[in-house]
């Protein structure tokens, strides 16, 4: 499932930019348009582009199956844990890290943390789904 040289070079060039864009979306999600889910989808697209151009077997060597599985579960657990820590400060999902000036990065409290967690969860989950489907398609 290898595509032509032009496609492979282009996707290799584009993928890092997509990761950077996704990182911007997840960190600045509370200040600008975007947020966890969108960032996660773009994160997943950066891997899925590589899969379509280089083939599943090649990509699996760099982004290992168990790593993706670990990130997926761990970020999900992190999200619920972060919400549970709020109980100590006043309530489930309570924003206990308030601070910073209006409009600055730190003013979001735990919201950027949530965005990062959601982005990793969504990105890993989409990649994981692709891996499982492709493992089934390319099993011969």
């Amino acid at each position: 499932m290898k595509m032509s040289l032009i496609v492979r070079t282009t996707t290799k060039l584009i993928s890092p930019f997509l990761v950077a864009y996704s990182a911007y979306l997840m960190i600045y999600g509370h200040l600008s348009p975007g947020g966890g889910f969108q960032a996660g989808v773009i994160l997943a697209v950066s891997v899925i582009l590589l899969i379509t151009s280089h083939g599943y077997k090649r990509v699996r060597k760099t982004f290992k199956f168990w790593e993706v599985q670990l990130i997926e579960g761990a970020s999900g657990g992190f999200l619920v844990l972060l919400a549970t820590v709020g109980i100590l400060f006043g309530g489930f999902f309570y924003n206990f890290l308030r601070g910073g000036d209006f409009g600055s990065l730190l003013s979001g409290g735990i919201i950027p943390l949530f965005n990062i967690g959601v982005a990793l969860k969504v990105g890993a989950a989409f990649t994981f789904m692709f891996y499982i489907l492709l493992r089934w398609v390319e099993r011969d």
Partner: peptide, 23 residues
């Protein structure tokens, strides 16, 4: 307090799902 009733099983579901990755 009530949301915790859902949070505990959910955390455990995520933790259980990463166990195969850690062998």
């Amino acid at each position: 307090m009530i949301p915790l009733i859902v949070a505990f099983p959910l955390i455990m579901a995520f933790l259980t799902s990463i166990l195969p990755a850690l062998r």
